[in-house]
């Protein structure tokens, strides 16, 4: 079975002017399976946003091919079908909302696709319920919080019923509460709707929730695997200037000091459970 999204030997450079080009990706390969939840992690300028834009043909590679469900993004006649298949949510929640009323904005995508009016109505209502914004369907976007706007943007994508959604640092401009809400919505898209998710971020704790983490560094893939496996490589990540989730970091330090911790620890709960086995119930009682 071939992958759902495939970047094969892709090279890409931004052209500043006729003479100057900034190479971003060189002979880059990545394939994403249908229904997967892939987090792409890395610093600004590592090429992760370019990967996002390549996935739905906003950018096309200078060499190599990008296939979306078998369709080459270079072919002009595939464009609409590719964008119907892969949708995007961007960092700035303000700059992707088109209409002056929440529900009209959610309808924008399906309207562009030429969906029947009654069907649009149904999808819009459902999508707004799915992201928990139904009560605010008549609100004006500029009166919403960043997290709410981002959820409206996601509803607008759900209403188009894409197979895959690419989110480019959707939480970078949000407060902790907004981040949590958006993350919860994204998890639901993947788990309940089976939508393939490519989630670009620089937050480790968000990446830890994915099925697969791809760590990018200077246009290359540094690590690729489950969050558990990837975050075990704390020295590689640190060399690239990235962190690992603190629970993992602490567990690794303790293990290096000889503590018998088993498995690859990712979350606070897992670590807490293991520490329970490690630590005496009451230090005071043992000493006496």
């Amino acid at each position: 079975m071939s992958a759902f999204i495939e970047l094969k030997d892709v090279s890409f450079a931004y052209e500043l002017d006729e003479t100057q080009r900034v190479p971003v990706l060189r002979h880059f390969n990545l394939s994403v399976e249908k229904g997967d939840f892939v987090a792409v992690l890395g610093h600004n300028g590592c090429g992760k946003s370019t990967v996002a834009k390549l996935c739905n043909a906003i950018e096309v590679p200078q060499s190599g091919t990008v296939l979306v469900n078998g369709m080459d993004t270079k072919e002009e006649e595939n464009l609409l079908e590719i964008r119907r298949t892969v949708d995007m949510v961007f960092q700035n929640p303000d700059n992707q909302i088109v209409a002056t009323i929440v529900e009209d904005d959610v309808a924008f995508g399906p309207e562009n696709l030429g969906v029947e009016p009654q069907e649009i109505r149904r999808r819009v209502d459902q999508a707004l319920k799915d992201v928990g914004m139904y009560d605010l369907r008549f609100s004006e976007p500029h009166k919403l919080s960043g997290g709410q706007k981002q959820r409206v943007a996601i509803a607008g994508i759900i209403a188009m019923q894409p197979a895959c959604i690419v989110l480019d640092e959707p939480t970078a401009m949000l407060d902790p509460r907004g981040r949590k809400d958006v993350m919860k919505t994204v998890r639901m898209l993947n788990r309940d709707f089976g939508i393939t998710v490519i989630y670009i971020t620089h937050y480790m704790d968000e990446a830890a929730e994915a099925n697969r983490v791809v760590v990018m560094h200077k246009g290359d893939i540094l690590l690729d695997g489950t969050p558990r496996d990837v975050f075990q490589q704390d020295d590689v990540l640190k060399k690239a200037g990235l962190d690992v989730p603190q629970a993992t970091e602490l567990s690794l330090q303790l293990r290096r000091a000889g503590a018998p911790l088993s498995g690859k620890i990712l979350t606070i709960d897992e670590l807490s459970l293991q520490l329970e086995a490690l630590l005496p119930r009451s230090a005071g009682r043992v000493e006496s």
Binding site: L250, A259, L278, L279, P280, A283, V286, E287
Partner: peptide, 9 residues
């Protein structure tokens, strides 16, 4: 803290 507790234990 944890290291001290663990060693102490």
């Amino acid at each position: 803290t944890i290291f001290a507790r663990w060693k102490g234990g």
